[in-house]
């Protein structure tokens, strides 16, 4: 089992003829993901390798039955691309694009409340169920199929580091999700934790957070009240200065809120096994799981 994506997931890639879209669509295909369509306005009727290209997401869905979209559209047009996928009835939308204006994402978020689609990201590496389906830009070989651990993270390469350490310890993954580093995003920690808790194959979860906002604090409360599976946590940004945006648009300490220290305390209080030394995260997981 897995959460959100599996071997039957049918993916349409929005922005498939762009440099990044093309490169990563090929990587996904090579991994075995069922990439059934691409979308680039004005290039309908063409093909990218064997993948048919459509002008619109609605057209792609109608012709191929795609139920998941992977978005590589540049920031000025990305919010519209997400809403186009929502309007086309795509169930799962994975937005890789980094740099979408906050006001655009706030509109998207409010728009999505009126619909049933799920958004992962933006500004994220995507989602992978190792051995079955990769919808994103993560390097495939670091993953180990078969579970039993789920991974959820606000970061990209930091997630790769965590997954790599798990795999080095011989611990496989059910599904790994990057929920993105932007202040306003779709699927949050709690959505993923809830899904992992309900997934019979997932036996534990690694949760990777960072400074900014209070998503980790809310997740900690959820874990304390609703989760029975063990959780290992890590928070990046103990040494980050306040008031500075640390790369990710959402990674900023404002006043006394959003500090790493505060998040770690909330997580420890919730019974999460918090890892303080990233170099030893794999070892800690081997002990806990």
């Amino acid at each position: 089992m897995s959460i959100f994506v599996n071997k039957d997931t049918k993916v349409v890639v929005q922005g498939i003829t762009g440099k990044e879209g093309q490169f990563h669509a090929r990587q996904c295909v090579a991994y075995g993901t069922r990439v059934v369509a691409g979308v680039t306005p004005g290039k309908g009727g063409q093909k990218m390798d064997d993948v048919p290209v459509f002008n619109t997401v609605a057209g792609a869905r109608k012709a191929t039955g795609a139920d998941c979209s992977l978005i590589f559209v540049p920031p000025p047009f990305a919010a519209a691309a997400i809403m186009e996928a929502v309007d086309a009835g795509i169930e799962l939308i994975v937005a890789i694009t980094e740099g979408i204006p906050v006001l655009d994402m706030m509109k998207v978020k409010n728009y999505m409340r009126l619909h049933r689609s799920r958004l992962i990201g933006p500004n994220c590496p995507g989602i992978i169920t190792p051995g079955a389906c990769k919808v994103g830009i993560m390097p495939a070989p670091i993953h180990k199929p078969g579970g039993p651990i789920g991974v959820v993270s606000r970061s990209g390469t930091l997630t790769y580091e965590v997954v790599h350490q798990l795999t080095q310890q011989g611990i496989g993954q059910t599904t790994c999700i990057g929920i993105g580093g932007d202040p306003v995003n779709g699927t949050n920690f709690i959505d993923c934790l809830q899904a992992f808790e309900a997934d019979p194959e997932t036996k534990g979860v690694v949760m990777v957070g960072e400074i900014g906002g209070n998503a980790e604090e809310e997740a900690a409360q959820f874990i304390a009240e609703k989760m029975r599976k063990p959780v290992v946590g890590f928070i990046a940004g103990l040494t980050a200065p306040p008031g500075r945006r640390m790369g990710h648009a959402g990674a900023i300490i404002s006043g006394n809120s959003g500090t790493a220290q505060g998040k770690i305390e909330a997580m420890e209080k919730a019974g999460i096994h918090v890892c303080k030394d990233l170099g030893r995260l794999g070892e800690l997981c081997a002990k806990v799981f």
Partner: peptide, 20 residues
Amino acid sequence: VNGAGLAMATMDIIKLAGAR
């Protein structure tokens, strides 16, 4: 470092090792 999260975590691990 490549990636913001890993960059922050790398700063943290430098501090943890006793440097700044």
